[in-house]
């Protein structure tokens, strides 16, 4: 998967530009989508809390892989949404899921040696979509390009806000 910084910058760019047309879509809402984009990265919980060790403790086999899938994004976004005011739930949930989807789509475009991404639409299907193999996850060029675009969008947005 792409690094988390790239994941959160992609919705920042997309929603900041969209906000130039949509009045309510300001920075505070964009931030929520950035948070949604971090949901698939919760799979890295395995680095500090090994899933198989937890599974042995609770007596069940388990994997954190669903964090990095559509099902995981929908559920975690639901839990986070509950922390917000009731009147904002629909908007918050949409932004969180949108951010999560952007991260899943980005990861679905990286290189897989057999030409198919992971089954990120789980649990709705086990299908592994074909990947365009655009990048490998440790390629700094991905982050550099994303950072450059995010910086330009940030500067333009600041100027629009001031004027």
């Amino acid at each position: 998967m792409a690094d988390l910084l790239t994941h959160v910058l992609v919705p920042f760019v997309l929603l900041t530009v969209a906000g130039w047309r949509v009045d309510w879509l300001d920075r505070r809402w964009t931030v929520l989508s950035m948070g949604g984009a971090a949901i698939p990265d919760l799979v890295k919980l395995n680095l500090v809390l090994d899933a198989s060790t937890v599974g042995e403790r609770v007596g069940l086999p388990l994997t954190y892989a669903p964090f990095s899938s559509l099902g995981g994004v929908l559920l975690v976004a639901g839990v986070i949404t509950l922390a917000f005011e009731r009147r904002h739930w629909r908007r918050v949930y949409g932004l969180l899921v949108g951010g999560g989807l952007s991260a899943l789509l980005l990861d679905g475009m990286r290189v897989y040696a057999d030409g198919h991404a992971s089954a990120w639409l789980y649990p709705f299907t086990y299908w592994r979509p074909p990947t365009p193999s655009l990048y490998v996850s440790s390629d700094p060029a991905v982050l550099v390009v994303t950072l450059a675009i995010a910086a330009i969008v940030f500067v333009v947005d600041e100027r629009r806000t001031r004027s």
Binding site: A51, P61, A65, P66, L75, G78, P123
Partner: peptide, 27 residues
């Protein structure tokens, strides 16, 4: 809200187990 959150987390926990036991279908 806490009850609903726990329900959603329970479903997520179920997915953790389901994904592991159906790992051969994903890979």
């Amino acid at each position: 809200r806490v009850v609903v959150a726990l329900l959603l987390l329970s479903v997520l926990g179920g997915l953790f187990v389901h994904a592991e036991v159906t790992g051969e279908r994903r890979w």
